[in-house]
């Protein structure tokens, strides 16, 4: 079988530990906060690096390429991915505040896959900001490749092109098998992403980072959806205390529970 050329798309999102605040105009959330790599994408970077380190793929791993479409700051995210072990990066630059919809991202990735001759795409199942959970599926559809979503385990056969993936589904797990090329999206329990060490961070600064524009792939950032309004969830209503059993009964009656 041929060597793996893995493509790992990553997204720069608001850090998971930061509580997003809705802006005054109610058009979105405040973006002037700490950002980091989407945790699910960290899982996919880690998985591709592990495939190489454990030599689990029979043909070996030829190339691990990370790609991100986003504002100039997305380069930091790409550098982090390279510090974790990716070989090179492609940065598709968009303007600040210009977000791509999953379909545009999938179209963009499709042409990148064709250009880079990738035969395995490992994506995070969703990003923690939009929570769309669509890009991987759409990409598989556009490419006509098999997809294994929400992977919790990825195993290569000793010979041949088949990959066995255990998926997380409601109430258990499902095991699927497909032949390369394929699309895998990662779930939370796939692996434990490493923390990039200082020497690797320094090395990552020297790894190649290619800059591209959306137009290079014939993609425009048109939006099919318009965000009408963004609001915070209503605050939780506190509980009340009752003095005795009678109080509890009357309260329950009042609420229509009895």
């Amino acid at each position: 079988m041929s060597a793996l050329r893995i493509l790992v798309p990553v997204k720069r999102v608001i850090d998971y530990a930061v509580k997003p605040r809705v802006n005054k105009a109610q058009t979105g959330v405040e973006t002037n906060v700490k950002h980091s790599m989407n945790p699910f994408d960290e899982l996919s970077v880690e998985e591709s690096v592990r495939i190489r380190e454990k030599k689990s793929a029979p043909g070996g791993v030829e190339d691990i390429c990370v790609i991100s479409a986003g504002p100039p700051k997305a380069q930091d995210t790409l550098r982090t991915a390279m510090a974790m072990g990716a070989d090179r990066a492609i940065h598709v630059e968009t303007k600040e505040g210009e977000d791509l919809e999953p379909l545009s991202v999938a179209k963009l990735l499709k042409s990148v896959v064709e250009q880079q001759k990738s035969n395995l795409v490992i994506l995070g199942k969703q990003s923690i900001d939009d929570d769309a959970n669509q890009t991987g599926q759409m990409l598989a559809g556009l490419l006509g490749w098999p997809q294994a979503t929400q992977a919790s385990k990825v195993m290569f056969e000793k010979e041949g092109d088949a990959v066995t993936v255990t998926r997380e589904v409601d109430g258990g797990s499902e095991t699927v098998r497909a032949k390369l090329p394929m699309v895998i999206t990662t779930d939370l329990r796939l692996n434990e992403p490493r923390y990039a060490s200082l020497p690797n961070i320094m090395k990552a600064k020297k790894k190649p980072l290619e800059k591209k524009k959306l137009e290079d792939f014939g993609i425009t950032a048109e939006r099919r959806l318009k965000i009408v309004k963004v609001t915070e969830p209503p605050p939780r209503q506190g509980g009340g205390k009752v003095d005795d059993v009678d109080g509890l009964v009357s309260k329950l009656k009042e609420l229509g529970a009895l």
């Binding site: 998971y16 530990a17 945790p39 923690i128 939370l188 434990e192 992403p193 490493r194 923390y195």
Partner: peptide, 18 residues
């Protein structure tokens, strides 16, 4: 410390998504 970070993130995400 690395384990601490990993667990903190894992638990937060698990709470959010599972």
């Amino acid at each position: 410390i690395e384990a601490l970070y990993y667990l903190k993130r894992y638990r937060t995400l698990r709470k959010r998504y599972d």
